[in-house]
Amino acid sequence: MRIPCPYCGSRDAHEFAYLGDATLTRPDPAAPDAAEAFHAYTYLRENPEGAHREYWYHANGCRRWLVVTRNTKTHEILGVEFARPSTDEVPA
C-alpha cells in the first residue's frame, strides 16, 4: 500500500504509523463533564464502512502527522493532508 504524503510524495505504508480516528477533538479538561468526555475521546470509536479520516504519522519520512482519508472497505486513499497545515498558516 502507498500513501501520498503531501511533503514526501508517494511512500510505502510501512513508513507510517497508524493512530486512527482523526475526527476526534481533545475535550476541554475544565468542563464539568470532562470525565465522560475524556472517556469517550479515549475509548469510543466509530467503525465506519467507507471513507474515514485517520491520523497517520510519517515516522520514517518528514515526521508530520497526516490526516488520511481512507476507504475502510477498499483501502483506497481518497485524500491526504497535514494534521497541522503549515506552520505559516497557523494563526498565532
Binding site: 504509523a17 493512530l19 481533545r26 491520523y55 504519522y57 515516522a59 515526521r63 508530520r64 502527522w65 497535514f82 494534521a83 497541522r84 497557523v90 494563526p91 498565532a92
Partner: peptide, 14 residues
C-alpha cells in the same frame, strides 16, 4: 518522540 509530535501537531498546533 512520536507522542510529542502528535501533541504539537495535532493537539496544540498553536
Amino acid at each position: 518522540f512520536q507522542h510529542l509530535e502528535y501533541c504539537l501537531q495535532v493537539l496544540w498546533p498553536e
